[in-house]
Design a protein around this nucleic acid. Structure first.
Lengths: 345, 345
DNA sequence: TTGTACGCGTTATCAG
DNA sequence: CTGATAACGCGTACAA
């Protein structure tokens, strides 16, 4: 075989291949791609045909390098299994689409190492900015310390008003207050709080709201329990532990920091002893997960405006990227109460 | 201020800025970045310091352009709310990490337009390949028709053995069979199938398995119901409709194509009439979602090895990208039965 | 070990 | 409307 004929094109065709096949200059091909109006219809047609024949796909890297920027931003989620984050993604995507941007997702699984890694990866990608969902104060400090200024980041689901970053979060203190106030309104007085490790900022804040509501009512918490985590199994263990106090009348209301926790508690309570929710004890969760409405006894909960959070966070980020004079803001969204069976009286 | 001193660097610093500050050539900086062993320790230190001072971040696009390739692949998920897909992502990420690759995620929401768009986006990004989760046969045809060869794609959660693509899926026919056989083993004989639109390949396959199991037992299905979709509310409506036949003894077993469907059915059945599951009727779902184990009456179900699917699919993709001689394969994974309360006897 | 120069695939500018 | 050409920021032979 002759050299010219045998030389296959193993790598994808480039713009010059298209230009050659169409018998035009590469500039015209580029124009046909990005400014169709600048090129004559007949030429356009030849170019389009050539593109089709070759299966030409523009090289994004080269394009980005020449154009000098991306039209997308990154979103790092901490828990794909939690519907809150899925809602956040939905909201962010909506905000992006409205401005002709795209969102690139990454899953940190709540691990600092991965949060870090993806922030770096996105920085190299030169995305316009990154949206980082965070729920651990120590992670925030680590990221903030390591993070070079210049790359806009807005923290989601985390509140910080020291002005170093924009943050958008849902007011967990208010949520904790809301939940507790609901129990108080339905006549409960001997209330305990159940919620995971304090390094989880959302949980710590919910507890604060819990304490404030009790304080305003002139009451003291019966107990504050901090299980290892906020899952169903943790709730189940706490439920076992609470069975006696409930039967003895020492506890008549439980504020849980998550629906899974609440579901576990309710399950344990009704399995182990003939304790009936809500007759003998009210239980309220947090998140408005499927776990809450799907439970045998539908569980009252606090609903978080996740999609709005994502939408708003993306807006903040875009403002930071585009606005010349940008002031970091810490936005807080208000959660709402959803009363269900588990707190009826 | 002198010109040299006053000139701020509004855009991010480049490799040459680092070189200048460190007093070395750009080649050394590049080496310090990519081949640390090729550069003298003392120089290395100066360079590292300069990088730190400037907050230098390599430009991924330029890097990729020069190096001629990415070290990542794309994964397009069709439903972030479904734990199966989250598991798939986890598996794919594990496979990627083992090979030093990263995974970029995108969310198609099951919409053809978005599946299409992200396939294109990933192609421009020059990812090594893309993993596409699909559950609609018509989407498969559309994508396959439009898709230019060259860009490796493996379809996940979809089976096609025409050899055009690698596909990795979970054997839904076997799952349907498994579920039905379980009901038969527990003595049920008058069984109906409930499952969404037939364009959903997984659902259609589960029904096939259902029919095969019945056929082998010499039985005919009492009914095959196809609600509009596979959600809880669809199940609830079907449940209302099935209440009479169940009470009349015409139906003693229900195979549902999803856990949500099953949960809705059970809920409707127990709300409307004093029908007890599993005493009067057995119900089995599919997916092993939270909806199944979290239900008032824990629902038996078919569990799908999602993480394994993602891991395996990524392996297939990598094999296709790297292997010189690659044969497209259609791999099928086996689901397993999880018996719970709703089918006890 | 370090510096120089070229190439990667596109876009944008500016003459024709 | 079209064509040549200079960036874009970095990797890497190759020479020093």
């Amino acid at each position: 075989m002759s050299d010219a004929l045998s030389r296959e094109e193993p790598s994808s065709p480039g713009i010059k291949d298209v230009a050659a096949l169409a018998g035009v200059s590469i500039a015209s091909v580029s124009n046909a791609l990005n400014h169709r109006e600048r090129v004559a219809p007949s030429t356009l047609e030849r170019i389009d045909r050539a593109i089709g024949m070759l299966g030409y796909i523009p090289n994004g890297a080269a394009r980005q390098l020449a154009a000098g920027g991306t039209r997308s931003f990154g979103l790092i989620l901490s828990d794909l299994g939690n519907s809150l984050f899925v809602d956040i993604a939905r909201g962010a995507e909506r905000a992006a689409e409205e401005r002709g941007l795209s969102v690139v997702l990454a899953n940190s699984d709540g691990k600092l190492e991965r949060e870090d890694r993806y922030v770096g990866l996105f920085a190299e990608t030169r995305v316009r900015g990154v949206l980082l969902t965070l729920n651990d104060a120590s992670h925030f400090r680590a990221i903030a310390g390591r993070h070079a200024y210049g790359q806009p980041i807005v923290m989601l689901n985390f509140h910080d008003d020291t002005g170093r970053y924009c943050t958008a979060s849902i007011d967990n203190e208010a949520g904790g207050y809301l939940a507790t106030a609901h129990l108080l309104e339905t006549g409960r007085r001997r209330i305990v709080f159940v919620g995971g490790p304090d390094t989880l900022q959302p949980v710590a804040d919910r507890r604060l709201g819990f304490l404030r509501a009790l304080g305003e009512a002139g009451l003291a918490p019966v107990d504050v329990i901090a299980p290892a985590w906020v899952n169903r199994s943790d709730g189940w263990q706490v439920g076992r532990r609470l069975a006696d106090p409930v039967l003895d009348g020492e506890v008549d209301g439980i504020v849980a920091a998550s629906d899974l926790l609440a579901a576990g508690i309710v399950q344990a309570l009704s399995e182990i002893r003939p304790i009936s929710v809500p007759e003998t004890v009210s239980v309220i969760g947090y998140d408005n997960n499927q776990a809450a409405w799907d439970a045998p006894i539908p569980i009252s909960t606090i609903s978080q405006p996740g999609e709005e959070l994502g939408y708003l966070g993306a807006g903040l980020l875009i403002d930071e990227v585009e606005g010349a004079e940008h002031q970091h803001r810490a936005v807080r969204l208000a959660p709402t109460l959803i009363a269900r069976r588990s707190t009826e009286r």
